[in-house]
Design a protein around this nucleic acid. Structure first.
Lengths: 197, 197
DNA sequence: TCCCAATGTGAGCATTAGCTCTTATTCTGG
DNA sequence: CCAGAATAAGAGCTAATGCTCACATTGGGA
C-alpha cells in the first residue's frame, strides 16, 4: 500500500478517455458488488474494464483515489436526489419525511451491495474538502429541513435518521428485498416515530 | 489468498495455548479498531499479539478463520446479553423493547469501531452452521418476542429493528458519542415508532 | 525424574498486490 | 495531411502478504 492520495489525478481531455474513466469506475463498482473488497485490485479493475493498468493509473494516482471518485459519484447522485426532494416540500412533516426516505430507498436499493460497501468504506477514506462537503450536504439538507419543522437537536436527529435509513435499507438489500414501497413505508414508520415522541 | 477455511482448527489443550489464542484474537480486534481492515495481516496480528506467525497458524488455518472466530465471540456475547434480557420480560412491549435496545447499545458502544467492522465483515464470511445458528439466534429471539406481543410479520420486524439499531449505534459510535442512555432512548423511540403505527 | 506430546519460533518461500515505464496507437488543430 | 499531444498498452519491478516447515522449548503424566 502506497501513500494515501485521494485527488490529484489527470483530467480526461478527449471523448475516449472519458469512456475509459467511466469503464474503470463501473468495473470497480461491479467487482465490489459481486466479489467484495478483497477482489478489488487495480489489475482486476483494469481487466474487467477492458483496459490496461497503465490507463487506470493515467487517471487515478492510486486505488484509494479510485474508490474516492466512486464514492463522490454515488454520493453526489444521492445528494442531488435528496436536494430535489427538498425543493418541493409538502410542509407536512410526515409526508416530507416519507418523500426523503423514498428517495433514499430508491437510490440505495438500485445497487444494494455497492451502496453497502461504499457506506462502509467512506469513513475510512481521507476525503478531500470538496467531497466532505458533498457529504455534509446530505446531513445539512436534512438538518435544515428538521429545523424548519421545529425539531430539537436537528443535527443529531439528521445523523440518526440517515443512519437508521442506511441501516435498514442496507440490511434489506442484502436479503434481496425488492419491495421498494414496503421498505420505504417501514423506514418511514421508524423515522416518524423517532421524530414525534 | 488461499482457500476459504473457517473452522477446522486445532483446539488448545494447555493453559498457555489458550492465552496465546486469546492474545491473537485481541490483537486482531485492536488492529481492526485502530488501523482498519487493510492493516489486518497475519504477520501484524502475530506481532501485536507478541507471538510468532507459526503459533497463529497452529490455531487458525487462515486469516478467514481468525475473523470468523472473532465474530463468533463478539456475536456470542451480544446474543447472551439479549437472551438474558429476554429472560426477564416486563410484559409491556415498550419497556421490553427499551431493555433489548439498552443491551444492544451497551454491547456495540463498548468497542464501536470493532462492532462496525465485524458487522460489515460478517455477511462476507462463509460461516459454518454453528455460527449461522448463533446469528439466527439474535433474530429469532427478537422475532419470538415480537410474535408474543402480536406483531405482524415478526421475522421482518426483527430484521428491521436489528438493522435500525445497528445503523444508529454504529453511526453514533463513529462520531465518538458516549452518551449510552441518550442514544438508547433515541433508538427506542424509532423502534417503538416502527412497531406502534 | 524423564519422556513425549503439546506448544512456540521465525526465516523464508510462493504468490500477488500496487504501481512504473517504455513503447505503440489514436486524435486534433493547423 | 502532418506533427505533436493525448491516450492506451502491458511487461515487469518492488514490496508485502499469506503461509509452511524444520527446529527449539515447555509441561504434565507415568
Amino acid at each position: 500500500m502506497s501513500k494515501i492520495v485521494v485527488d490529484p489525478r489527470k483530467r480526461p481531455r478527449q471523448r475516449r478517455s472519458e469512456a475509459t474513466v467511466d469503464a474503470i469506475l463501473e468495473a470497480a463498482a461491479r467487482i465490489l458488488e459481486s466479489d467484495g473488497l478483497d477482489a478489488l485490485t487495480t489489475n482486476a479493475v483494469a481487466d474487467r474494464a477492458g483496459v490496461s493498468v497503465g490507463s487506470l493509473y493515467q487517471y487515478f494516482p492510486g486505488k484509494t483515489a479510485l474508490l474516492a471518485e466512486l464514492i463522490r459519484r454515488e454520493r453526489g447522485a444521492l445528494v442531488r436526489r435528496i436536494a430535489a426532494t427538498a425543493a418541493k416540500p409538502a410542509s407536512n412533516l410526515e409526508a416530507d419525511v416519507a418523500a426523503f426516505i423514498d428517495a433514499a430507498v430508491a437510490h440505495q436499493l438500485t445497487r444494494p451491495a455497492l451502496a453497502r460497501a461504499l457506506d462502509f468504506l467512506e469513513p475510512t477514506l481521507p476525503l478531500d474538502a470538496e467531497s466532505s462537503t458533498l457529504n455534509a450536504n446530505l446531513a445539512d439538507i436534512v438538518s435544515a429541513f428538521l429545523m424548519r419543522h421545529g425539531v430539537t437537536a436537528p443535527e443529531q436527529a439528521a445523523r440518526d435518521l440517515i443512519a437508521l435509513t442506511k441501516g435498514m435499507v442496507d440490511a434489506a438489500g442484502m436479503t434481496g428485498e425488492t419491495d421498494h414501497a414496503g421498505l420505504s413505508s417501514r423506514v418511514t414508520r421508524a423515522a416518524v416515530g423517532y421524530l414525534l415522541r
